[in-house]
């Protein structure tokens, strides 16, 4: 007879999904955008990504060691944070600043709150905001695509979001040198390293939807809210809406950052409220704020509200129909 039988609680079968597998899917989904950023900004895009990833992985390793906790590098989440952080930075950012960003994301935002699943705001997003506040000039140096990002005298340009700010009432003719819609899709415009190529991000997003890593609820309502808001803000100008959707970090934010498990509600209703909130704050900042772009702030702000949203949207258990039933009886 066997000497060692495992006795554990049911179920004795497990699905094939694993945390590592999910994170790997996210990494795969980010690859197209990474390739496109290398096309537009040269090898520096890859080096910058390598630096943030290395910084995140190392921070996580050291942090867990110091805190005497088990090593969690195997879940690959630090790599995902690293890539997403790099995507949110200008390709020209000094590498040491990028490294600091990685440390902030992992040590301050993630590990100090208990590690994976416990952080209350998106690590990459928070790191980006801290960098933006700390190094405003370096974090706003958007070079024209197709140049070598290593060169010191690369030509800079305004991002479409900054340009659109002058399109009062959605009148695009007021904007000079606006890239075409095709260029917006492909990413031939100024912006953060990974956010420029909308089509690559959309492809990655669909891959995640297909693999059921993310649910369509958050991207749909986030992008949808921005679209509806911009439709009215732009006086019904569809072209203006398209520019608003493809510009800035909306696609990156809606597919990859607002859908972050740890910082979005687990209930479906909660996801809808969360995504609409993100969309509204993004739009309000874009139209009325002094900043040209609001995706990161909107996500962070909504992240903070997640526990409350979740509390309000917890589902009633199966068959819980007290009030409805009372009504039915009255009818009968």
């Amino acid at each position: 007879m066997a000497k060692r039988l495992t006795v554990s609680a049911s179920p004795h079968m497990r699905s094939a999904d694993t945390t590592t597998g999910i994170m790997l899917d996210v990494i795969i989904a980010l690859v197209p955008a990474l390739v496109m950023s290398a096309v537009y900004f040269g090898s520096r895009a890859l080096v910058l990504t390598a630096v943030t990833v290395a910084s995140c992985v190392l921070s996580e390793f050291v942090c867990r060691k110091v805190m005497k906790r088990d090593n969690t590098l195997g879940d690959l989440s630090a790599i995902v944070t690293g890539i997403i952080l790099a995507f949110n930075l200008p390709a020209t950012l000094p590498l040491w600043m990028a490294a600091i960003g990685g440390i902030i994301a992992i040590v301050v935002v993630k590990q100090m709150f208990g590690g994976i699943g416990q952080n209350f705001v998106n690590p990459a997003m928070t790191a980006r905001i801290i960098l933006m506040v700390s190094f405003p000039t370096a974090m706003a140096k958007w070079i024209v695509t197709g140049q070598n990002a290593w060169s010191v005298d690369a030509v800079t340009s305004a991002t479409p979001m900054a340009q659109l700010a002058s399109a009062k009432g959605g009148d695009l003719s007021l904007v000079e040198d606006l890239p075409s819609i095709a260029e917006m899709l492909l990413g031939k415009h100024g912006g953060s390293m990974g956010e420029v190529c909308s089509i690559a991000l959309i492809c990655g997003g669909f891959y995640l939807l297909l693999r059921k890593v993310i649910s369509p609820v958050i991207p749909f309502f986030f992008i949808g809210t921005v679209a509806v808001f911009m439709f009215f803000a732009g006086g019904g100008n569809i072209e203006f809406v398209i520019y608003q959707l493809l510009g800035g970090g909306l696609m990156l934010g809606a597919f990859f950052m607002a859908t972050d498990y740890a910082t979005s509600p687990i209930t479906k209703k909660g996801k809808i409220i969360f995504a609409i909130g993100c969309g509204l704050i993004t739009s309000v900042i874009r139209i009325f704020g002094s900043l040209p772009e609001g995706v990161s702030f909107s996500i962070i702000l909504m992240n903070i509200l997640v526990p409350h949203i979740e509390n309000f949207t917890l589902s009633k258990p199966f068959g819980f129909v007290k009030e409805k039933k009372a009504k039915k009886e009255v009818k009968a």
Binding site: T6, S8, H12, M13, R14, D17, T18, T19, I22, T72, G74, D75, S77, G114, G115, I116, G117, Q118, S215, Y261, A262, I266, T267
Partner: peptide
């Protein structure tokens, strides 16, 4: 005997 490696909850909502 399918036993998955136990990791922290990532709040995926599955």
């Amino acid at each position: 005997d399918l036993v998955k490696k136990e990791r922290a909850c990532i709040r995926c909502g599955r």
